[in-house]
Design a protein around this nucleic acid. Structure first.
Lengths: 336, 336
DNA sequence: TTGTATGCGTTATCAC
DNA sequence: GTGATAACGCATACAA
């Protein structure tokens, strides 16, 4: 295999100069640089990343910690990270944690992970006290994209405002009896997207002077399937049932809509449905929602990380992302 | 930072022994191994992967090349790879290529990529001759998951059979005039999933002695949105229109169904719709399809790679994945 | 601007 | 079963 010494010999220079030339560092005359680049290409020289990492201490790799990769928000976000990284010679190392089950497994890996990456991008998920503590202990640029984590900088929408906005939209339409489909029963977690979205809902309802019947609080897990199941439970509620339902995510809202149609419940005539996220399928079925752009958020977070690595201290900091109410056909005034 | 020498010194042994002990190699007495492991833990020792890579030549990282990460098949597949890797101490390096545009960009990166990984898992996509050639030149275990690539081992369903099966299901129901929603206009590519799925369709139609009107061949790009648009074009076809439509993917079929409902076209009374893939939302809306499991396929492919790396030559080889016709409510006999 | 020399932290090959 | 030591391939002070 051709190494830096071969290039140096062939170009009649030292390895130090080759190193500088290849990496585009200053202090290399245009002539020698050109010559080196040419011979390097000719010999098919490719630097050994392993050696480079060892010698420089930099991995040129950023890690992405995600609870899922096959769910809307995370897929979009990972895509965004990748887009920023490529072309800049950075690699993306993916670490899937798997939902809320066995988060312990990682406590050890974390230490290993740390030596494999220069910076870490965390995608919103449920974290316990201990894990948050571990995160704080990690000594490298770190940003979270999505839900807020106490003490860490994050790029994401204001989830409280999002659910409050979408709920008030229903109230403005005249709804007085609204059900809620939570993202998860996480009453034990203090900081998490599902919880915050729930609070926005409650505050909107109470602020409007309305009552919320605890029996109309349903729980799902952000999947379409759980939305389907939620609607079935909704139909078991005693009459008069709520005239609208706020879903903590578009994916669940879609499930609710699908099953409603199947059961002959008309939307929005019989039931208004809203979600949060801006899932592409929502547009196709006319779902009213609060839109956000996970890809853009992830790109922004990645750029912060890169800047920080580039020496720009303070580049990583909290930043609110764009969000927008999009009214479509799944909402209308209640009929009764 | 604590290195292997610190551990060796503290444990009163040589670095060589520490190395063996830590990696679980033989030729270390139980006693010394226990002692070493204990002091290593005590000192918080974590091996430097960079140094290990340099010395051993192995990266313990497998690369995943994907055209998208935020699309159903790919998200599921990446998830599968990750699941197999974690726990075995392997890392997952993700390389997003981006659809069919600028595939050239990679030709150089490929060489760089090669030194960063021990094996490569390719997710089905469009490849030109040149790229296939490059792939063959790569000297490491390589497997493709999804569509077949000439000369390379792949794990995936029989796409020809899938589309043929789904088309024959419609023919069996009595449909004589069937439209096709291609995954893409890729008449210039010889081997790709969309093309193969198209062939299965044509063969089924011709084998049944039916005619296919070229005007009823529509084109999409596997997204829900393109399905929506395809239905609009479908409605512009002169009467009598086809009584059924075969979509090259569930995502497109979903788009077709959504827009059909919006336009007041009843499914399956006015139009039968079928897809291929087994997308979760298909179940929620009653879409008839040919199911497959990308996660399982990716896990299988990953395991082959790992076996091959483990010295089991010939572990990587072509393997057909499970597929199954699932009849739901989007199909029925034609009314005319 | 360019060259020299040392260090980076393991792994692996021998001996013992 | 254990130890000494030479690679591994590049980055980077420091010197020229």
């Amino acid at each position: 295999m051709v190494g830096i010494e071969d290039v140096a010999a062939a170009a009649g220079v030292s390895t130090a100069t080759v190193s500088r030339a290849i990496r585009g560092l200053p202090r290399v005359s245009p002539r020698t640089r050109a010559k080196i680049l040419a011979t390097a290409k000719e010999l098919g020289y490719v630097p050994s990343s392993a050696a480079s990492r060892l010698a420089s201490g930099k991995t040129r790799t950023i890690g992405v910690l995600a609870p899922y990769v096959d769910r809307w928000f995370f897929g979009k976000a990972i895509d965004g990270v990748d887009r920023e990284l490529h072309g800049r010679g950075y690699n993306l190392s993916l670490f899937n944690l798997g939902g809320r089950t066995q988060p312990r497994e990682r406590l050890f890996s974390k230490a290993m992970v740390q030596k494999q990456i220069d910076a870490l991008l965390l995608l919103c998920m449920y974290l316990n006290e201990e894990e948050i503590e571990d995160l704080h202990a990690i000594d490298m640029p770190l940003v979270v994209v999505g839900g807020p984590v106490p003490g860490l900088s994050n790029v994401g929408i204001d989830d409280y405002q999002a659910s409050r906005t979408i709920t008030e939209h229903l109230i403005d339409l005249g709804h007085r009896h609204i059900a809620l489909l939570h993202g998860q029963d996480d009453s034990d977690l203090n900081f998490s997207v599902p919880r915050i979205r729930g609070e926005g809902f409650y505050d909107a309802v109470h602020h409007a002077g309305l009552e919320f019947d605890p029996d109309t609080a349903l729980f799902g897990d952000f999947t379409v399937k759980s939305g389907v199941e939620a609607l079935r439970r909704f139909l078991e509620l005693p009459e008069p049932r709520p005239t609208a339902i706020v879903c903590a995510s578009d994916e669940m809202a879609l499930g609710v809509m699908f099953e409603a149609r199947r059961r002959g419940i008309r939307i929005p005539e019989d039931l208004s449905v809203v979600g949060i996220d801006g899932h592409e399928m929502g547009a196709a079925v006319g779902l009213t929602t609060v839109w956000q752009d996970p890809t853009a958020q992830a790109r922004r977070g990645t750029r912060m990380l890169l800047s920080e690595l580039g020496g720009d201290e303070g580049a990583v900091r909290p930043e609110k992302a764009e969000q927008r109410l999009i009214v479509r056909e799944s909402t209308a005034p209640p009929r009764r």
